[in-house]
Design a binder for these strands. Structure first.
Lengths: 210, 210
DNA sequence: TTAACGTTTGTCCGTTCGGTCAAAATTCTG
DNA sequence: CAGAATTTTGACCGAACGGACAAACGTTAA
């Protein structure tokens, strides 16, 4: 087996690849795939371009490596939504966790958003596979709660979309949010305000019999 | 006055500029500012690159022209939200109109999203000026409705963000929405489903005393 | 008809891009 | 320490990029 990038064995390999992925996350999330340059990533990673290309042969390899490792983290909150739990508690904590991710990992959110916005050319299989499967599974859970009369009957798919949209908005559209809120209201408190609002919106919006 | 681009007098000037803006909308919304090339836009507009550069001297000029003319259309639905109207009706039709725009003008939505995602380097003044002013104005309207007990007391800014996020999601994340819904549910009906869901969510979520 | 003005094009330029390569420097292993 | 393997670098390449320019082509109005 003629490996192009040497088999990942050494300590240096692991460390440098980590540094590169960190730098690439910064650059890709800020400029998109085409907008990001290898030189930018190399500079952010503190190494020369050929050195970077020694660890990842092509620009696209960095990008796919990033997305691959991200997906699990990203879907974890939804995975944790438990059919056996209390629906309101489950939804509430799902929203809270997604909002925390928007606050703590905005670059990851923007990396995804950039990719989807431009037609998901590099991750379409993931969307139609892993992501769709997970959503289908949770749709069943939501339907169960609806049939049991524990939350209002409504479209479970669009409910999930609404949670995604409202939470990720605070990462993806952060500059707009801060611009509109202004200096006073746009401080660190905006995430708590958002959490309170979204909790109220979804909990009341999904009250059974609504 | 030494004008670089000839003063817009002729019929051809007006027509060609229109064609270029249409082509540029297509290309910019699909690839972002940096990802789009002048050649792509020229080809989509059916003319040579130098010919295109005769009407717009620089790539950035096309982009700013696009955004400038877009902003009015884009904010029109919010502008129409009338303090004198019935709150539920006003909110419902605001949501419906925003959703129609996501359906009918997805490229415009993605153009904005691309710009915001990458830090709004070219439209920050618009966000802090015109956009913020309009939101501030409508926040007063929402606050009035809340004080009158006609909708639930909640954070008016985040309410507006939630409406933006949920509606624009169907334009900006269209490929993801369709991938998750699959071929059967992802057809043209998805906008009506979304409208029904969002109406229910926001109307119930904002019931007074909630 | 012709001169002025508006439009279009082929060609070219300097820069930046993604990526290669051979050689040098470093680290690892016996 | 010696030699093998790994890591780093400077120099370089072809393609694509944004943009410039003069010449050619159309159009129009005196």
């Amino acid at each position: 087996m003629d490996e192009a990038v040497p088999r990942r064995r050494t300590r240096i390999q692991a460390e440098k690849r980590e540094v590169i992925l960190g730098a690439a996350l910064e650059v890709f999330s800020a400029h998109g795939f085409r907008g990001a340059t290898i030189d930018q990533i190399a500079e952010a990673a503190g190494m020369s371009k050929p050195n970077l290309l020694y660890y990842f042969r092509r620009k696209e390899d960095i990008h796919t490596a990033l997305i691959q490792r991200l997906l699990d983290t990203w879907l974890a909150p939804l995975r944790e939504m438990d059919a056996a739990g209390d629906p309101v508690t489950e939804l509430r904590s799902y929203i809270r966790r997604k909002l925390e991710m928007a606050r703590d990992f905005p670059r990851e959110s923007r990396l995804f958003a950039n990719e989807i916005l431009q037609g998901a050319p590099r991750i379409m299989p993931l969307l139609e596979g892993e992501l769709k499967d997970l959503v289908d599974e949770k749709v069943v859970v939501l339907r169960g709660w609806m049939r049991a009369g524990r939350i209002a009957r409504t479209d479970p798919w669009h409910l999930i979309f609404a949670i995604w949209a409202t939470t990720q908005h605070y990462a993806d559209f952060d500059v707009q949010v801060r611009a509109v809120l202004g200096p006073d209201r746009g401080g660190d408190g905006r995430f708590e305000d958002a959490a309170r609002f979204l909790e109220q919106l979804f909990v009341n919006g999904l009250k059974p019999g609504g």
